[in-house]
């Protein structure tokens, strides 16, 4: 077992409505994995469930192994030792993710005390070092300020500093740049890339922004309606997406390199978890779907070229990336 995290058949339901339908996912030590998919497909829930952070009304089954230790159903104390220490998580809206009534320096020190047993001047020195590391200018004088006295980008840097405090093996970044301006986004992405290499920590990067995923990650998982539909190396999925949904995601963004393509949004919307189609969840929106797809849910299966795919009629490999667009018309 040389994976850092192995998620097996993870299922989550809220008030009896299933929203995750059996996720299998591995994270190797030090790797950067992207998790993409439209809003509501279960990207956040996957990792909140893994860390036991979902509200009580959520029922979770399956296993999440962290270097062999199963986290699902682990006692609260065991989870508390994992959170922040082995696996840290940062969130979308940094300004509301930091406590508004506690000085930011103290919030970082709290993590240092919990995970590294630091107190007093040692803790403060280390907190200041972390603030410097993530690029908070003039950390010493801003140590005692409150969250609202920082911009969104600075607040996200503080979140990252706090996440680094436990020297985690894995950082889950849940849409860390979505709430920020474009230039700030780029800075935060650079910071995440640098830190990952410096601290040799694995990163799971959850995002809608495929360009950002390509920049940060080596491997990417595409999720749709609570399932992984395609998984593989970033270059492979970008060059030859095989799941029609993956292809649809790429067609919906302006391509940075290569020939200019027309932007084609995926028709229709994400299905309501309470009324999923009986067959493939993507079938109603899929141009390649056939009758078979309305009856059968495809399994996520390994493909010869190394990726995993859950589709009965995938985009053929040999096909040029431009051609399938015709089929959408």
């Amino acid at each position: 077992m040389n994976n850092l995290v192995e998620i097996r058949n993870l299922r989550v339901a809220f008030d009896g409505v299933p929203v995750l339908h059996g996720i299998d996912l591995d994270v190797a030590p030090g790797e950067a994995l992207g998790l993409v998919g439209e809003s509501g497909c279960g990207k956040s829930v996957t990792w909140l469930a893994a860390l036991g952070l979902l509200p009580g009304k959520a029922s979770v089954s399956g296993s999440v192994y962290l270097q062999g230790q199963d986290l699902t159903g682990a006692p609260r104390q065991a989870l508390e030792r994992v959170r922040g220490k082995r696996v840290a998580m940062i969130f979308q809206d940094p300004s509301s993710a930091l406590n508004p009534v506690i000085r930011v320096g103290r919030q970082i020190i709290e993590a240092l005390r919990l995970h590294r047993g630091l107190a007093g001047t040692a803790a403060k020195t280390e907190a200041l070092r972390l603030m410097d590391l993530v690029g908070i200018p003039d950390a010493r004088n801003r140590f005692n300020l409150y969250t609202h006295e920082f911009s969104g980008g600075q607040a996200q840097r503080l979140m990252i500093a706090m996440a680094l405090a436990g020297e985690p093996d894995l950082l889950i970044a849940d849409e860390p740049t979505t709430a920020l301006d474009a230039t700030i986004q780029a800075q935060i992405l650079d910071l995440l890339i640098t830190l990952r290499h410096e601290m040799s920590m694995a990163t799971v990067f959850i995002s809608h922004d495929l360009a950002a995923v390509a920049q940060v990650c080596e491997r990417v998982c595409v999720m749709y309606a609570g399932k992984i539909v395609e998984e593989g190396p970033v270059a492979q999925l970008f060059d030859t997406p095989r799941h029609p949904y993956t292809q649809g995601l790429f067609d919906a963004i302006p391509s940075l390199s290569g020939p200019r393509r027309r932007l084609v949004p995926i028709p229709g919307t994400v299905p309501d978890p309470r009324h999923l189609p009986t067959g493939c969840a993507f079938e109603p929106r899929c141009a390649r779907a056939r009758t078979f797809c309305t009856q059968h849910r495809p399994e996520l299966l390994p493909q010869p070229e190394g990726r995993q795919l859950a589709c009965a009629y995938p985009v053929p490999v040999a096909q040029d990336a431009v051609q399938p667009e015709e089929e959408y018309q």
Binding site: R76, E80, R83, A97
Partner: peptide, 26 residues
Amino acid sequence: GAPYIRTASAKGVSWSDVVRNHALPN
């Protein structure tokens, strides 16, 4: 239900300290 409470839990603060140090002052 606020995001900063989830942050505090995610960073490993025990439930009782989350309530005492993070929730009550707010």
